[in-house]
């Protein structure tokens, strides 16, 4: 049996209690910025029964003349959908941020058609009494002609 000394034990208890305190503080008043002591807020919001559900995506016109949905993940364009959603406001103000999506795609898929024009699109699904009502409507938020 190995016991820890009085000071060792006191320190350990103090650290644990302080950690729990930081966690409670984070959950009660901090934001995600305080990671790892921020609130556990993923999927924590109450969505009303008549909510509009937004889904943000990026659509691309390629140099082969096709229109495709950009795969927003690390293997696809090197950037995750969540990042695009979180920064949608900034992209609307400054569409050149979309250049990174085209660059990421071109770098990861050199043998595939390149993107020449990108559109940030928001699909909106309407809920009625908690159920999905009809197909989503689409709105173009930002357009970017890709620089070579």
């Amino acid at each position: 049996m190995v016991r820890v000394g009085r000071i060792g034990k006191g320190l350990r208890v103090l650290v644990a209690v302080a950690g729990v305190g930081l966690l409670i503080n984070g959950s009660v008043r901090a934001s995600d910025d305080a990671w790892p002591f921020g609130p556990m807020s993923q999927y924590a919001m109450s969505v009303p029964d008549d909510a509009k559900i937004d889904y943000t995506r990026v659509s691309a016109v390629t140099d082969a003349g096709t229109t495709v949905d950009v795969p927003l993940n690390i293997e696809g364009a090197g950037v995750a959908r969540a990042e695009i959603e979180a920064r949608a406001g900034e992209i609307v103000k400054n569409p050149s941020l979309l250049q990174q999506v085209a660059d990421g795609w071109a770098r990861k898929h050199p043998d595939q058609p390149k993107y020449v024009k990108l559109e940030l699109i928001r699909d909106t699904t309407q809920l009625v009494k908690g159920r999905v009502e009809g197909p989503p409507t689409s709105q173009v938020l930002a357009t970017w002609e890709v620089r070579r």
Binding site: P39, V47, P48, L127, G130, V132
Partner: peptide, 22 residues
């Protein structure tokens, strides 16, 4: 706790359309 907080410290999360949304 975060679910209560985001609803303004109320228990509306379990009856809401959050999973439909997700």
């Amino acid at each position: 706790v975060a679910k209560l907080r985001s609803a303004g410290w109320a228990l509306s999360w379990p009856g809401s359309a959050v999973l439909t949304w997700a």
